[in-house]
Amino acid sequence: MKISVNNKEVETAAVSISALVEELSLPLQGIAVAVENRLVPRTAWDGYALAEGMNIVIIKAACGG
């Protein structure tokens, strides 16, 4: 299915946020995920079903000042 991740179209076989994070080789800590501009708690990633055309934003924490 095709979804938008950080404004880029991505073809994925992932069916949940946790599967998408794993597919994209992202770290499990230090990131936040929003679907359709709503933050999804990490505890809900396994059960949050992805669908064609969803808009997902992944934010990585950064250190610095």
Rank of each mutant, 00 (worst) to 15 (best):
M54A: 10
K60Y: 02
L26A: 08
V57E: 08
L20P: 01
A19F: 05
A49P: 02
Y48T: 10
G47W: 06
T12N: 05
T43F: 04
L20F: 06
V57S: 06
L26C: 10
E23V: 06
I3V: 15
E52G: 00
K60R: 15
L20S: 03
R42D: 05
G65I: 05
E23R: 04
I17S: 04
A62D: 01
P27H: 11
T12M: 08
L24Y: 09
N37D: 15
C63L: 13
A51M: 06
N6R: 08
A19P: 02
S16Q: 12
V10N: 02
A32V: 11
L50H: 01
K8L: 09
V5P: 03
I3S: 05
R38K: 11
N6L: 11
W45V: 04
L39H: 06
G53R: 09
R42I: 02
S4C: 12
V21L: 06
L26W: 10
P41H: 09
M1H: 13
A61Y: 04
S16N: 14
N55L: 03
T43H: 05
I58V: 02
L28D: 10
S4A: 05
L28Q: 15
M1G: 13
C63V: 07
W45F: 09
I17L: 15
G53H: 03
N7M: 11
R38T: 14
V21H: 03
V10Y: 11
I17F: 05
T12K: 05
V35P: 00
M1I: 05
V15W: 00
V10Q: 10
I17A: 06
A34Q: 08
A49K: 14
I31G: 04
L24T: 09
G53S: 08
I58F: 00
V35Y: 01
G65A: 08
S4L: 11
K60A: 12
W45C: 01
I3H: 14
P27R: 11
P41F: 05
K2H: 13
I56D: 00
A19M: 12
A19S: 11
E52C: 02
D46L: 03
M1W: 07
G47N: 15
V35A: 02
G47C: 02
A14M: 08
S16L: 10
V33P: 00
V21R: 11
S25G: 07
N7R: 13
V21S: 09
S4E: 13
E11C: 03
L24H: 15
L50V: 04
E22R: 10
N7H: 15
I56M: 04
N6H: 14
L20Q: 08
I56N: 02
N6Y: 13
E11D: 07
S18E: 15
W45K: 00
L20A: 07
D46I: 00
A62L: 00
E11M: 07
V10R: 08
I31Q: 04
A13R: 12
E9T: 09
N55T: 05
L39C: 05
R38H: 14
L24W: 07
M54S: 00
A62W: 00
K2C: 02
L26P: 08
